[in-house]
Measured scan of single mutants.
Amino acid sequence: MKHYEVEILDAKTREKLCFLDKVEPHATIAEIKNLFTKTHPQWYPARQSLRLDPKGKSLKDEDVLQKLPVGTTATLYFRDLGAQISWVTVFLTEYAGPLFIYLLFYFRVPFIYGHKYDFTSSRHTVVHLACICHSFHYIKRLLETLFVHRFSHGTMPLRNIFKNCTYYWGFAAWMAYYINHPLYTPPTYGAQQVKLALAIFVICQLGNFSIHMALRDLRPAGSKTRKIPYPTKNPFTWLFLLVSCPNYTYEVGSWIGFAIMTQCLPVALFSLVGFTQMTIWAKGKHRSYLKEFRDYPPLRMPIIPFLL
């Protein structure tokens, strides 16, 4: 059985960083990364991007050496992705923050609204209902991160945790300040508006959870398998008939419901920014589905049925 020789060059300087002799033909890129780490321990596998061309796409960890368009002496180019952190850690951090930050404003801890309001309670029912909904949303997200989601990528750049936390924590503080303010004004149409908004919120939260469970069942634990998601017997998953990412559709719907319930401008802005970002993600995933699966359902749109 022939063996391969693998040289790894710096993608920027073309400097030879490592030479691997007698590499098995069936070795994966993940195994080559581990061998590279032995000579350069500062670059652990998650930091490494190996590619066939200095400006090309990163090879997948599961790619097999003998199936790549290389000879028995293969040249790979290395790029440092920077310090990495696990997706689970990032999600837990960015979701735990809003949960606790919101509660600080809800309980009106000292130095927020003035001494005479310390630890007082709002007289408006919608304020307490909003706290329950907000807390439920982020507790749900935390539990899904721990027990439901299966991540195709193990890590992301460390800098992302600061960007994500600034976004989630900042908006949580902004909306919580106004919703729990002693001078907060309840919704214009009173109980009817709150009940309608609560119904929207609850339905969308159930829908979002149902989609996450359906997506989880598509991917076996520990794998990166991708399949076309289809509706199940659960009615909340029937939205798969019309959109590629109904989890985002339901998520946006939840925040629209919360915005109607609280009639709070920061919540509306958070919903708008979230919708914009999720639309970008949904379009990317939709394109990926179309590219990977020739039999992908043609009627589906990325996030909004028939429109977007």
Rank of each mutant, 00 (worst) to 15 (best):
H3C: 02
H3Y: 07
Y4I: 14
V6T: 02
V6P: 05
E7W: 00
E7C: 11
D10H: 13
K12H: 12
T13M: 11
R14T: 06
E15L: 09
K16I: 08
K16W: 05
F19M: 07
D21E: 12
K22L: 10
K22R: 10
H26Y: 09
H26F: 02
A27P: 04
T28Y: 08
T28Q: 15
T28I: 10
A30I: 02
E31H: 10
E31M: 06
I32V: 09
K33T: 08
L35N: 01
L35Y: 09
L35P: 06
T39A: 12
H40D: 08
Q42L: 11
W43E: 14
P45W: 01
A46P: 12
A46L: 04
R47G: 15
Q48A: 12
S49A: 14
S49Q: 12
S49H: 12
D53N: 13
G56N: 03
K57L: 04
K57N: 07
L59K: 12
D61R: 05
D61E: 08
D61K: 02
E62Q: 05
D63Y: 06
D63N: 13
T73L: 13
Y77D: 04
G82R: 12
G82K: 15
Q84R: 10
Q84S: 02
I85S: 07
S86I: 08
W87F: 05
V88N: 00
L92Q: 13
L92W: 15
F100C: 14
I101G: 07
Y102G: 04
L104T: 15
F107P: 02
F107T: 06
R108S: 00
Y113D: 00
G114S: 09
K116E: 08
V127Q: 00
V127Y: 05
V127G: 03
H128Q: 05
C131H: 01
C133N: 00
H134R: 03
S135A: 12
T145H: 04
T145M: 09
F147S: 10
S152A: 14
T155A: 11
L158P: 04
N160C: 14
N160H: 14
N164T: 01
C165G: 12
G170V: 07
A172T: 10
W174C: 08
W174G: 08
A176I: 09
Y177S: 03
Y177W: 04
Y178H: 06
P182D: 00
T185L: 13
P187D: 13
P187Y: 15
Y189F: 12
V194R: 14
V202M: 11
C204R: 02
F209S: 12
S210T: 04
A214S: 07
R219W: 05
A221N: 08
S223C: 01
P229H: 01
Y230D: 08
P231T: 04
N234M: 04
F236W: 02
W238L: 09
L239M: 00
C245R: 06
C245L: 03
N247Y: 09
S254T: 08
G257R: 03
G257S: 09
F258A: 14
A259E: 14
A259G: 13
T262F: 14
L265Y: 13
P266S: 07
L269T: 01
L272F: 13
F275S: 07
Q277R: 06
I280K: 14
A282E: 06
A282G: 07
H286N: 06
H286R: 10
K291V: 09
F293C: 10
Y296V: 01
Y296L: 03
M301S: 03
M301K: 11
P302N: 00
I303C: 10
P305V: 02
P305R: 06
L308P: 10
L308F: 12
